[in-house]
Design a protein around this nucleic acid. Structure first.
Length: 412
RNA sequence: CGGAGCGUAGUUCAGAUGGCUUAGAACGUGCGCUUUGGGAGCGCAAGGUCGUGGGUUCAAGUCCCACCGCUCCGACCA
């Protein structure tokens, strides 16, 4: 992509009222644009990152044996009345058709996935089943905040699983925990803290939340500095400084943001929609269900919260909008210009995603500043100074290397 | 929904004890020249229902009321 053609521009300043780092940086660097409170446009760069995050999630979901489908965002009122949630979920966005029929903008999809499953699950042979999709979710938040971290419309992956019995659910549930940790790690977050919402009582429901430690977060977390153990502040009897019940590490307290949660739904929804299957003995049974969410847009924001410096964003390689940011300086010099375009095209031919700052009228300083702000992990510079060589620098490093083109590919 | 702050050019902000005349600056944009290793310089130009509606006044960007919107703190967060 030629930078001169890229939709979206960097800004020198954004509103001083923005508190969250991710809100500021993503706006400044031209990844997002606010439409209204809690509602955002994703520009070219932002959409690229989001797509990469979604693809990582899809790969891990598919590896679990889950199948991607697509369910609607408009849900008729009757579905939500069947689960008794039309009047009890107060963040539910509601709307009405011209004829007065009422609908909800879906904040989650148990109300569609369960009736859908009911049409196809007839026998124990149809189980287990896992379905997921990635769509916009809607929540009528009284107070959206921190830009993309807490919106009224946001991206979410939701997975639903159906099982013959509780053990099979638990088994799958554990696999999802592992898949989630893989996903977050691939997105550059290796320090995820997991809270467990209940004890081990057989009849009790269980749930887990996946948290990223950041001051921009909304919950106070008591967490272990060595392992992934964590507890919400309200429910624990432990204190900072105590030792971790799992690994004896030292507990600490900080703010965190929840980027994923998973929970055991039991038979609540299968009962509500009378979803049953016939077991081996010919008896009707309610499947056990689990649901598993990852806020994709929030995850993107959380990554920026923990991966930046005073100059801008620092993208983890696997989710960066481009892998390489090539800066052409002195482009009015024909030799430099030819070489820059040459390198650009050769890297493209190697299948490398590259953003080429081809602007001729812009000073070197501005190009450097933009590159640091946008945060692509590898920066290349070609100029009169570099001659026939190329300057190579990683975003988080201070000093560049001067290399030959032949060395370049192997370093990316 | 309680509390606080804010709303003036594309953006970030001055102007606020009513009257400096034609509402400013910087950045950005367009044109010309100059310039290219850390957000360069000069000149010219375009760009405004001062959030909306009402009120007070000879006179309102400025004071009063209502509404709308944005940000932050809190409550809320299936």
């Amino acid at each position: 992509m030629l930078y001169s053609k890229l939709f979206g521009k960097t800004k020198k300043k954004v509103s001083q009222q923005f508190e969250a780092k991710s809100h500021e940086l993503l706006t400044k660097a031209g990844f997002i644009d606010q439409v209204a409170s809690g509602i955002f446009n994703f520009l070219t760069l932002g959409k690229k990152v989001l797509t990469k995050i979604e693809n990582i999630i899809k790969e891990e979901m598919n590896a679990l044996g889950a199948q991607e489908i697509l369910m609607p965002s408009l849900h008729p009122k009757t579905l939500w009345q069947q689960t008794n949630r039309w009047d009890t979920v107060d963040v539910l966005f509601k709307t009405e058709s011209q004829l007065g029929q009422e609908y909800a903008f879906a904040p989650t999809h148990e109300e569609t996935v369960t009736p859908l499953a009911k049409k196809f699950i007839k026998s124990y042979k149809d189980l287990p089943l896992a379905l997921y999709h990635i769509t916009a979710k809607f929540r009528d938040e009284p107070r959206p905040k921190s830009g993309i971290l807490r919106g009224r419309e946001f991206g979410m992956k939701d997975l639903y699983s159906f099982h013959e019995n509780k053990d099979d659910l638990k088994n799958f549930y554990q696999k999802v925990i592992d898949a989630y940790l893989k996903i977050f790690k691939r997105c550059g977050l290796s320090n995820i803290k997991i809270t467990e919402a209940s004890g081990g009582s057989f009849t009790k429901k269980f749930s887990h939340e996946f948290n990223v430690l950041t001051p921009a977060g909304e919950v106070d977390l008591l967490y272990c500095q060595k392992c992934s153990f964590a507890q919400n502040e309200e429910i624990n009897q432990l204190k900072p400084g105590d030792s971790c019940p799992k690994c004896k590490g030292v507990l600490k307290k900080d703010r965190a943001i929840e980027v994923g949660n998973i929970f055991d739904l039991g038979t609540r929804f299968s009962e509500a929609f009378d979803l049953t299957y016939t077991d081996k003995k010919g008896k009707k049974q309610y499947p056990f269900m689990g649901c598993y969410g990852i806020g994709t847009t929030r995850l993107l924001g959380a990554i920026v919260e923990v991966s930046n410096d005073e100059k801008g964003i620092i993208w983890p390689f696997d989710i960066s909008p481009y892998q390489v940011h090539l800066l052409g300086l002195d482009l009015k010099d024909k030799k430099v210009k030819n070489m820059s375009y040459n390198v650009y095209h050769q890297l493209l031919n190697h299948g490398i995603e590259i953003l080429f700052d081809d602007r001729e009228e812009v000073s070197a300083g501005e190009k450097f500043a933009d590159a640091d702000l946008i945060g692509i992990p590898i920066r290349l510079v070609i100029s009169q100074k570099t001659g026939k060589k190329i300057e190579f620098k990683k975003r988080f490093e201070k000093t560049p290397l001067i290399i030959d083109f032949s060395e370049l590919i192997s370093k990316i």
